[in-house]
């Protein structure tokens, strides 16, 4: 990384870390929403951005994670943050089960099927499936998260919890990108036949992308349940999936910085334009159209270059 870029990243991170000092509770809460959507979008980015699989049902995995956490917490009194790995696992397994029969579908066909999955999950939740989801009212009374003996309840406390998770995710996903696994997802996106013909088990990597992306959505679901203390099916409707899809495409599919920037714009801007009331979505839609015309590959398009001349020297002959 060039020094100027490194400096900019450090400066931005420091500014963000200090944000609760000069922002009011409402503004910090908006940042918390941005962080949650950022986490969800980074997970979706693995599926949609890196592997090129059109998933417009990401909210389903988010919901599975949130409900797993809520049920474990309210019925079995498991501390909400402890449910984090389990809700990730549940959402990931759920994704594997639903993706297994449909993952061979291409492009728009997969898109339609995933929309269906999202709707089925939402309707199942409304219908109080297994008698555990509380129907349309959802689940309430989820306990506050506790970290190192401190109960997290105020916006700025959640801010550090959520953005800490975002930072960890960036760290892990950047490493993943620089690996055999990360490259395999890109080969899949670029040319499936050539990928299989180069010895890559394309069916396996498609499922792995779904599983990992969904696991991240599941863990974001836990954070959401902890933050709201009440969850209902309406939080996981089709529009959420659309927004996440939009964030990934708008930001630059396959680019972590781009996806986070888009999360700021898509979630943050409508809050800034609250005065315009109902017109804000109109303005927002217009901006999207203009964007897609002038920057079809996203705000920050993914660059192919994983390696610099310096890293090349590491290759031993």
């Amino acid at each position: 990384m060039k020094h100027g870029k490194l400096f900019a990243v450090v400066l931005l991170a420091a500014l963000l870390a200090a944000a609760p000092l000069f922002l009011n509770a409402y503004q910090v809460d908006v940042l918390n929403s941005i962080g949650l959507y950022g986490l969800l979008a980074l997970g979706l980015n693995l599926i949609l951005g890196e592997a090129g699989l059109f998933n417009m049902g990401h909210a389903a995995f988010y919901a599975v994670g949130a409900y797993t956490a809520a049920i474990l917490n309210t019925r079995y009194q498991i501390p909400i943050l402890w449910t984090l790995p389990l809700s990730g696992l549940t959402a990931g397994l759920f994704a594997l089960v639903v993706a297994r029969p449909v993952v061979h579908l291409r492009g728009d066909y997969l898109l339609i099927v995933t929309i269906g999955v999202g709707e089925i999950v939402r309707i199942a939740l409304v219908n109080d499936i297994f008698g555990m989801t509380g129907g349309a009212n959802g689940i309430f009374g989820i306990s506050r998260p506790q970290l190192f003996g401190i109960v997290i309840r105020r916006p700025w406390e959640f801010f550090y919890l959520i953005w800490g998770c975002v930072a960890l995710t960036i760290f892990l996903f950047l490493r993943l990108k620089q690996s055999r696994f990360g490259r395999a997802l890109n080969y899949l996106r670029e040319d499936e036949v050539a990928a299989e013909g180069s010895g890559i088990n394309t069916a396996y990597y498609k499922l792995a992308a779904f599983g990992l992306g969904a696991a991240w959505a599941g863990m974001a679901g836990t954070l959401f349940a902890a933050k709201m203390t009440i969850i209902s099916p309406e939080s996981f409707n089709f529009w959420e999936s659309v927004v996440l899809f939009m964030i990934v495409i708008l930001g630059g599919a396959g680019n972590i910085a781009g996806v986070l920037l888009a999360a700021f714009l898509v979630i943050g801007l409508p809050e800034l334009f609250r005065e315009f009331a109902s017109a804000r979505m109109l303005v927002f839609g217009l901006v999207m159209v203009v964007m897609m015309v002038f920057r079809p590959r996203g705000l920050l398009p993914a660059r192919g270059g994983r390696f610099s001349p310096v890293t090349l020297a590491r290759g031993r002959g």
Binding site: D191, G197, A302, L312
Partner: peptide, 18 residues
């Protein structure tokens, strides 16, 4: 059939994958 938007090196690394 190359991976058009990846680098030349990344294309060859695909062969090393398995």
């Amino acid at each position: 059939r190359l991976f058009q938007r990846l680098t030349v090196l990344e294309n060859v690394l695909a062969g090393c994958h398995y």
